[in-house]
């Protein structure tokens, strides 16, 4: 019998297990459709068919790209601001303690409140939409990066000072590699949160995007449409997470595992 080498066998077996798990979910879905009406829970093939037709009309792609654009903009904004705040709070003890209650408040502020206030204060426009999403994400990024700044190895920083390394070299060679695992972790959890909030923002105040389409199909009681858009967008986000963020994360974490 063919035996795979252990190093290759393990990932293959894991992938196999994951595929089996997804197939089981599909089976359960099909089973559930036996007991419900097709307009309450359409069978998988109907949803896939719908994805196909929406794709061929161009609507699915257009709305997904618009949503993806918002996700990307809000994500970049939240990461940039959150990293800056987190680093500041981690590196300056007193400031960190002083602003800690603010952070706690922001962390516990419901996403919906931020969205509504942004729309009320800024108006029903793109700036408000993206800002609302970013504000929801900033405190999480800040908390993660604050831990990253606190975890910076003081011994290495002292070594850099002893050898009179320039600020640029210290930042690039000593500090940045220690922070990237935290940035990657914040990015991974950030993407998962941001796209879900973008849908709510679109549902409440935009006239395009996946969230808007979901709202439309909700009003038309079109469950197949809702599932088609959700599934398609989940696949896109999975693609970004497993194709970009996770590989990057495991690369920047490589030296920590040893």
């Amino acid at each position: 019998m063919l035996k795979l080498p252990a190093s290759l066998g393990r990932p293959l077996r894991r992938t196999g297990l994951q595929i089996a798990s997804l197939l089981l979910l599909l089976g359960l879905w099909m089973l559930a459709t036996l007991f419900t009406e097709a307009d309450i829970l359409p069978p998988p093939w109907q949803v896939f068919q719908r994805i196909g037709s929406e794709l061929s009309q161009g609507d699915l792609l257009r709305h997904s790209l618009i949503t993806l654009g918002r996700v990307f903009a809000a994500f970049i904004l939240a990461m940039a601001i959150g990293c800056a705040i987190g680093l500041f709070m981690g590196l300056h003890k007193t400031a960190g303690r002083f602003f800690d209650p603010w952070l706690l408040l922001m962390l516990n502020l419901p996403a919906l409140v931020v969205i509504i206030l942004c729309y009320l204060w800024i108006g029903l426009n793109e700036v408000a939409a993206i800002l609302a999403v970013a504000i929801n994400k900033i405190p999480n990024v800040a908390v993660t990066l604050r831990e990253g700044a606190k975890a910076l190895d003081r011994d290495l920083l002292e070594m850099a000072r002893c050898y009179r390394l320039s600020r640029r070299v210290t930042l690039k060679e000593v500090i940045w590699p220690q922070l990237t695992p935290f940035i990657a972790a914040a990015a991974r959890s950030g993407l998962a949160l941001v796209w879900k909030i973008v849908l709510v923002v679109e549902l409440l105040g935009r006239s395009n995007g996946v969230g808007f389409q979901l709202h439309l199909y909700f009003q038309m009681f079109d469950v197949a449409g809702i599932l088609a858009y959700s599934l398609a967008f989940i696949v896109i986000i999975w693609g970004i997470e497993y194709g970009l963020i996770r590989p990057w994360e495991s690369r920047v974490n490589r030296w920590r595992v040893v």
């Binding site: 011994d155 290495l156 002292e158 070594m159 050898y163 590699p177 490589r254 030296w255 040893v258």
Partner: peptide
């Protein structure tokens, strides 16, 4: 030149790069 109690090397860099750093 310092030899610290703990080696204080950059764990993500190679032996060569650690020396070349300074």
């Amino acid at each position: 030149g310092f030899v610290f109690q703990e080696p204080r090397l950059l764990p993500w860099r190679s032996v060569y790069d650690n020396i070349a750093l300074v």
